[in-house]
Design a protein around this nucleic acid. Sequence first.
RNA 1: GGGCGAGUGGCGGAAUUGGUAUACGCGUUCGACUUAAAAUCGAAUGUCCAAAAGACGUGCGGGUUCAAGUCCCGCCUCGCCCACCA
Length: 811
Amino acid sequence: MQRYEPLPIEKKWQEKWDKDGTYVVDFSDHSKPKYYGMSMLPGITGAGIHIGHGRTFQFSDIKVRTKRQQGFNAYNPIGWDSFGLPVENYAIKVGKTPRIAHDEARENFKTQLKRLGYSYDWTKEISTADPQYYKWTQWIFNQLFEHGLAYQKESAQWWCETDQTVLANEQVEGGKCWRCGNQVTKKNLKQWFFKITEYADEILEATDDLNWTEMVKTMQKNWIGKSQGAEVDFQVDGSKDIIKIFTTRPDTLFGATFMVLAPEHQLVSKITTTESKSVVEQYIKQAASKSEIERQENKEKTGVPTGAYAINPVNGEKIPVWIADYVMMGYGTGAIMAVPAHDERDNEFAKKFDIAITRVIDGGQDELHTGEGALINSGQFDGMSSEQAREEIVAWLQQQKLGNEKVQYKMRDWLISRQRYWGAPIPIVYCDKDGAVAVPDDQLPVELPEVDDFKPKGGATSVLADVEDWVNTTCPKCGGPAKRETDTMDGYACSSWYFLRYADPFNEQEAWSPDQIKHWTPVDFYNGADHAVAHLLYARFWMRFFHKLGLVGDSEPFKRMMYNAYIMAPDGRKMSKSLGNVIDPMEIMDSGYGADSLRVYEMFIAPYDMDAPWDTRGVPGTYRFLNRTWNLVQEYLNGDEVNLDENQTAEILKIAHKTTKKVTDDIENDKFNTAVSAMMEAVNGYFKLKESAGIGKNDSWKFAVESLLQILAPFAPHITEELWSQLGHNETIHIDNWPQWDEKYLVSDTITVPVQVNGKVRATLNVSADISEQAVIDQAKAHEKIAPYLGGKELRKAIYVAGRIVNLVVS
RNA sequence: GGGCGAGUGGCGGAAUUGGUAUACGCGUUCGACUUAAAAUCGAAUGUCCAAAAGACGUGCGGGUUCAAGUCCCGCCUCGCCCACCA
């Protein structure tokens, strides 16, 4: 009898699959339904893959493998997120150029992924740093530019001093750089943006209908942060200047007893009175020197009066205008009307600086009432509900041309300029005559030049600014001298459309063929453990844009998005190099367990959406299971013919059909952990039956063994392929090969019914499945363990839930 | 402060969505095999009690119900995301 030795088996089959092109997809084959599933594009790093990667990739591998076995033309693509800071920083660290460092790291990644046995179509591999790829990223930039969705603007942006580049809002986490974790500051720079805000409402509207992990949908909705409200004009007293404010509570307008401008607000210097000038200037200086973090952490209200007054448009009252850093320049208009009776922050501020508080919503005895209610002290609007008053007051403002309805979003446009070398150049040239001009499509790609020294030099440009023969070019419009844009694109730009390129990776004429894309998209299954906001929002934005251009068939890229959790280190903390608690999947495989045991444990450890600590004993556990499976099949292969009686046959087939159904359903519902336990139970069950029935040649055993291998194949592709071939099959187990279950084997003639007395289980009954309620209750009452509980007591109620339970209520 | 989610054995986690709580795996203990160890196989394993019988038991306190891990009300703890967003 052969022993289970994973390493040689895995090597053998991986080579065979490669040679046979087992997982190569024929795009033109429309005879089968398509299934398109993938995990988020892996970013190249020097470290290679870790346990968490492996688990993430495996979810999509199992989904796609299952569909492939179920008769779909199933495609599991692979590629690399090659541009960006991680690679460039890694290159600096190892003292190589980003290109060389990247290529080496990529080879390493590839070798590692191959060893885990994912069913990728390696013939279609792509990389975002390949000129034939970023040519089309630049082409997309041109499309956006042409449609007014790419523009330049000078404003204060997040700046990371460590990484020497600006960052998008989505890349700043709690005031810190998402890459290096250092605090970011604001820097005033002219930058390129993509106008994602134009799609904010559309994206928001469509979010609820997505079959995505709920948490991601909520995070995206919060990020977009839509608020319905009004914009209101306040005139500065004794001047023509208007202070525009945004409020979600126009119903409280009569309660506005002061106004607050952000210190950076453009009107501040203009309206400040001579007497207040010095104190205002001092405050502005102080606010500017505070980091964003400090401003957020110190919630104690500060501020100074400008000395100016504004007129409340609804009641003509003169109210003071202050500046304070609790008002942010980046949201709304950078100015607010303050209603201290009905807003917590305004209340705190008014109390501290002794400003009048006027109640305009009936909030009972509450001194501060932030909820809704009937209006008071509001002239003609008295008595209205907040809801009604909002409409009426805005209507009145509109009539007086003093305000308007307004929808406000927290989301900002997507900042894509990066002052770093290793990225796709922004395909723009500057000419004195024509300004910013797009490089024509037929001149793409604008190739990233090779440079000797790519390390950022500080300042506000990338090192590309020093590559003179690259920077200096001619203007495509006028032919005169021009200079290239020296910023590169955010790596997220490269990874916002790769799932389209995957389905047409070699197209030299266009980014993709619309016909081919319409067949393959949307992506049926997508998963990852990161980028809940940034990447997934950008991809949705672009997909909608492409859809409007008629280049794709859908406006949403991912039909199902599964956001999976992290594997923690055995100590319960996040795995990280600095903590030295990283688990290396290669080490586990090399120690003799191989890929299959690792794969099965990665699925078995916990539900996909729950963080779980790695247990170093877990892989040996699943190895035991696979080993038992191996032995089961060997016993079947080497066993003689066996004769089974009716009961034994029924029992074997019941396990086989039940497990097939359970595993099929569980994979469909992303319950991979319970699918694995069901298969373990099946193997345990078969070995129990061995004692009474024996294992050997027999039709029932054949179905039991083969169906087990078929449903286990997506989890453990190597051992199942090996055993499948040992069973005499010449074709691979992995294509068009899924067992059917039959409900008729799942029902049995007899069932076990627990009997409760007053809700406590006292006995169990074995009865026939179609027993009548009366009969089962009679049997329950007569049961020797039940009778004592009934003696001398009144039976008040007897309940039988068919097939489940009997409960006798006595008193 | 706001939003979302979660609290079940020594550990990771199951529970047909109101019907035998702790499936499956890890760990532990005992046994078989072995000169021995590893591997493998078998048995036991929620708590209290010497054991049986029994009682108790899903973060805490109440409630609904014949029946609650599951539903309702009130708390506590932990995790994540957002955070002076007007």
